[in-house]
Amino acid sequence: MSLLSICEWIQNTDLSTAIREGALYYPIIGGVHLLAIALFGGMLLAVDVRLLGWGMRRRAVSDVVGQLRAWKRFGFVVVVASGALLGWAEPLKLYHSKSFWIKMALLLMVGVHALVFRPTVYGNSTRLDEAPSMPAVAKLAAALSLILWAGLVLSGRLIAFDS
């Protein structure tokens, strides 16, 4: 079974047709996707900005990382779930979209980023509080996180402009 035939199968499901052809489902799910990016993307930015030392410097790293963790996770789930529904509506278009595959590659790298940096940075914030200066690995994690995030937004937006 090829990927293309899976996409064709998805496209023919009732859910796919409903989101694609219903007047309100698509914009509402799109709105939730965008809102989650605004609310929780902003929290991700706050954490990375703290790690880079660009802001909130009076607050302990563990305060910022620890207190926003649950919200970032919640936001991630909402973004992925609403994004999956949007994708479910038009799998054939996405199959042929270069931007979509770039976006999926970036999403995969978000997973790698989490695996690589959780032990030393995000899951280790109390140690970062004690460090005399921010370790390079934490700054690297934050910079990569910002780049991945911006890349996901950009590639996602470009899907609509792929012909």
């Binding site: 993307g41 902003g42 930015l45």
Partner: peptide, 8 residues
């Protein structure tokens, strides 16, 4: 995202 995220 910066504006609304930080306000949120």
């Amino acid at each position: 995202a910066l504006l609304i995220g930080t306000i949120a």
